Simulated scan of single mutants.
Amino acid sequence: MGSLFEELEAREAAARVRVEELEAEVAELSGKLQLAREGLERLRIARETVAEVLAEMMPEVPAVTVDAGQSPASEWVASAYAGAERQVIWVLTVPNWQPGMVSEVLPPVYRDIVEVVADALVPVRAKQIVPRIGLPAETGKIEGTRSKLKRLVERGWPDEDTPGMFTPARRRMAASPNSR
C-alpha cells in the first residue's frame, strides 16, 4: 500500500508546482494588464486635453464629423473621439503667406526659422539655422528643421532656389516699401 500513497504524494507535488507556475503567470499578466490600462488612461487624458485646448483656440471654426476610417489631410489634424466617430477641428499650423502677413502668425519655432533666414546675408542651410534657434546641432534636429523649412517654402515664407539653400522670399521683399 505504500506505493499508492507515494504516487498520490508525487501527483500532489506536481499539481502544486503547476499551480505555482500558473499563479506566477497570472501575476505577470496582471502587471502587464495594469501597465496597459495606465497607458490607455494617459492617452485618453491627452486626447481630451488636446481637444479642449483646440476648442478654446478655435471656437469660431465649425466642427465636422467624419468616419473613423478616414484620415484628415496631413497638415490639418486635431481630433476628439466620441465612440466610433471623431470630431475634427481643422487647424493649419503654418498658414500660406499673404501680402501684409508677418511672422508673428507662425508657431514660435517656425517664426524663429523665418527670422533667421530673413537676417541671413547669404542663403543658409538647415544645419546653419539649428544652432541659431537654440537647438543642438544633431542630425535629428537638423532634419526636423529642414522639414519645417520645406513646409515654409511650400507656404510661401522663404525661397529655396538651390536645393537645401534657403533665402527670404523675393515676392515679400519686392512688396516691402524699403525694397524700392
Rank of each mutant, 00 (worst) to 15 (best):
A14P: 02
A13F: 03
V122F: 13
V130R: 05
A174S: 09
W90N: 09
W90G: 09
R44V: 07
S176Y: 07
Q128A: 07
E115N: 13
V114T: 06
P158Y: 08
E6Q: 03
E60L: 05
D161M: 09
V77Q: 12
A27W: 05
S103G: 06
W76C: 12
E154R: 11
E75L: 11
P99I: 04
G164I: 02
L35V: 03
N178K: 10
G83S: 02
E160V: 04
G100F: 03
G164C: 05
P123Y: 01
E160M: 14
E143D: 13
E21T: 07
V88L: 15
A80C: 07
G140D: 05
M1C: 03
R42K: 14
G164P: 01
A137C: 09
S79V: 11
R44N: 08
V17S: 09
L43N: 05
A51C: 10
L8P: 00
S103V: 13
A10W: 02
M57R: 12
N178P: 00
T162R: 11
V117H: 01
A120V: 00
A63M: 14
R18Q: 14
M165Y: 12
P158A: 06
R125D: 00
A13C: 04
P136K: 12
W97P: 02
R44T: 11
G39Q: 11
A13P: 01
A126Y: 04
D112A: 13
G134P: 03
F166K: 02
A27N: 06
R125F: 00
